[in-house]
Each structure stands twice: as structure tokens, then as C-alpha cells.
């Protein structure tokens, strides 16, 4: 296998991996503030792409305006989802929650199918389609957009959770919800915010990937599962571990598709997911779960 071909696979894997990382962080944010695995996360990714198309095609908005509009709409959808599906449960068990989020996901997908049909669409790339050559391999400008935007979002996310009072308060809820209530944090409000942030991030992931992979009402399932894999590899951290998880997943997937067969692309991710769950359920980098010290 020549080097430039390997590099090619690695580069394209990197940008898919960045998408998985973004989606995975969305999973982690909600998991950390509520303990819920939000299986509807993928649908917000789908909404990102589909809403952008909707704003461009039907409302004739330019791309630069359609993107924020779509992110805002998806965020509002996340807010409604939390209000209508998650909050009404008084004493939820994890299994209730899983079923509710799966139900929510089916509902959102069904509604999108009714609204926008079953066709596959593609978004215009953000800037041109002229491939860029890097050491024998080529990448599209969209790949650079994906990497850049992902980096910015992850940095902003990190900044928010570690350097702003609101972000620190949200983290506090995940460490100790009871104490958070006692210091005057409205934990339910923070849960709502976590759903809004995750759906905004998911939507953004869906938008930047749509020019490359096309989008349709049902892309959320696979992207959601891949993001979930990334989060599991990262031990449900909302930081660097999940980003690395996403990148590793993306690169392995792309190498596997190139070296073995592209038909195995998804199988590779799920084999990794299963291996991690069997061998290191705490994630690749996580310490084994321990009680309070």
C-alpha cells in the first residue's frame, strides 16, 4: 500500500472523524448533566442539514444566513424535545429514558419524512470544489471547513465549560446534582441548556458534513450511532477524549474501507464499539469508575 494512498484515507478519515467527535460531544454533554444517553442526538444532526436545505430552497436564503437559521431552529427543537419528552417524567429510570429518546428520534425522523420527503439532497460546498493537493493526497475545501469549524466549536465548548460561570455551574450539576441545588443552581434549567447546546452542536455537524455525504431524512441514525461510538471510546467525556475517539473512529473506518472493502465501513465502527464496551467500558482513556474519594 503506497504511502500517498494511506495518507489519502487518513485525511478523509480525519474529517469524518471530526464530525463523529462533534456528535459524540453532544452525547456526552447530555449524559454528563442527566445520565441520559440521548438516542435522538442523530436526528438533530439530520435536522441541521435538512433545515439548511429547507431555508435555501424554499425560503431562498443565502447559505451564510441559512446556516445560523438552521442551527437556531434545531436548538429550538432540542428545547422542545427536553420540555415535551424528557422533563414530564418525574422519576425516570434509565430504560424509560432510552425508550423515550428512541421514540423521540423515530418521531422526528417521521415528521421530517412527511415534511421533506424521502429524497436525498446535497448542500452546496461552502467554498468551491477544487481539490487541494497535500503530499500526494488531495482533499476538498469542505474537508478544511469541517476540520476548522469542528476545532472552533470544540475550543468554544471547552472555554464555556471551564472559563465561564454558567459553564462551571453546568459542570457542577454533573458532579453533584444535590449540592448544585443547594448552591442555588436550578438543575432542571441546566438540563434544558444541555439539550439546547447538544442539539446546536449536532445541527452544526449535520450542516458541515452535508455537502460531502448528502443528506436525507434518515441520515441521523447512522451518524448518531457513530457519534455514540466516539463518545463511548472517549469514556463519555465532553472534552479531548471524545474528540480523539471520533478521530480514531473516522480514520480506522476510512482505512478499513480503503484497505478491506468499503462495504465493511459501518461494521468496523460497530466492532470497535463492541470491543470497547466489552474490554474497556470506561472508555479508552478513562480510569475505572470509582466511588467518591
Amino acid at each position: 500500500m503506497p504511502f500517498d494512498q494511506l495518507l489519502q484515507y487518513a485525511l478523509s478519515g480525519l474529517s469524518t472523524g471530526a464530525i463523529y467527535a462533534l456528535i459524540g460531544i453532544g452525547f456526552s454533554i447530555i449524559y454528563n448533566s442527566t445520565g441520559i444517553i440521548n438516542f435522538a442526538q442523530g436526528e438533530f444532526v439530520m435536522l441541521g442539514g435538512m433545515l439548511t436545505l429547507f431555508y435555501i430552497n424554499l425560503l431562498k436564503l443565502p447559505l451564510w444566513a441559512a446556516i445560523p437559521a438552521s442551527v437556531l431552529t434545531a436548538t429550538a427543537a432540542g428545547l422542545l424535545f427536553e420540555r415535551l419528552a424528557i422533563r414530564p417524567l418525574r422519576k425516570p429510570t434509565p430504560i424509560n429514558m432510552v425508550i423515550i429518546t428512541i421514540g423521540g428520534s423515530i418521531f422526528i425522523r417521521g415528521l421530517s419524512m412527511l415534511l421533506w420527503g424521502k429524497d436525498t439532497h446535497s448542500l452546496p460546498p461552502f467554498s468551491g470544489e477544487e481539490p487541494i493537493a497535500i503530499a500526494g493526497a488531495t482533499i476538498l475545501p469542505q474537508h478544511l471547513w469541517i476540520l476548522g469549524i469542528t476545532l472552533v466549536i470544540i475550543a468554544a465548548n471547552k472555554y464555556f465549560f471551564y472559563h465561564t460561570i454558567s459553564g462551571i455551574a453546568m459542570r457542577a450539576c454533573s458532579y453533584n446534582g444535590r449540592a448544585a441545588g443547594l448552591v442555588g443552581i436550578d438543575v432542571r434549567r441546566m438540563v434544558l441548556f444541555s439539550f439546547m447546546i447538544s442539539s446546536a452542536m449536532g445541527a452544526m455537524a449535520g450542516i458541515i458534513v452535508a455537502p460531502l455525504t448528502m443528506t436525507s431524512y434518515d441520515v441521523g441514525v447512522m451518524l448518531g450511532l457513530k457519534g455514540f461510538c466516539a463518545a463511548i471510546i472517549g469514556g463519555m467525556s465532553s472534552g479531548a477524549a471524545t474528540v480523539v475517539g471520533g478521530l480514531v473512529l473516522g480514520i480506522l473506518e476510512s482505512l478499513g474501507a480503503g484497505l478491506i472493502s468499503s462495504g465493511y465501513k459501518d461494521a468496523i465502527s460497530f466492532i470497535i464499539l463492541l470491543l470497547i464496551l466489552f474490554i474497556r467500558p470506561q472508555g479508552l482513556f478513562g480510569k475505572a469508575e470509582s466511588e467518591r474519594v
Binding site: 460561570i165 462551571i168 457542577a172 458532579y175 453533584n176 449540592a179 443547594l182 443552581i185
Partner: peptide, 26 residues
């Protein structure tokens, strides 16, 4: 009105300063 606990309730993964910052959130 605030309280402290017999078995201290802190935000374990956060730094000492961050714990106090959370208290000032409101």
C-alpha cells in the same frame, strides 16, 4: 439560606476555586 453537610458535598472533579465560583453562580 445555605447549608453544609456532614458528609461534605463538593463537586469532586472541579478545582477548589471552581467549587467556590459555582457558589457564586446565582
Amino acid at each position: 439560606m445555605v447549608r453544609t453537610f456532614q458528609n461534605i458535598e463538593l463537586f469532586g472533579g472541579m478545582t477548589v476555586l471552581e467549587n467556590v465560583l459555582v457558589g457564586m453562580h446565582t
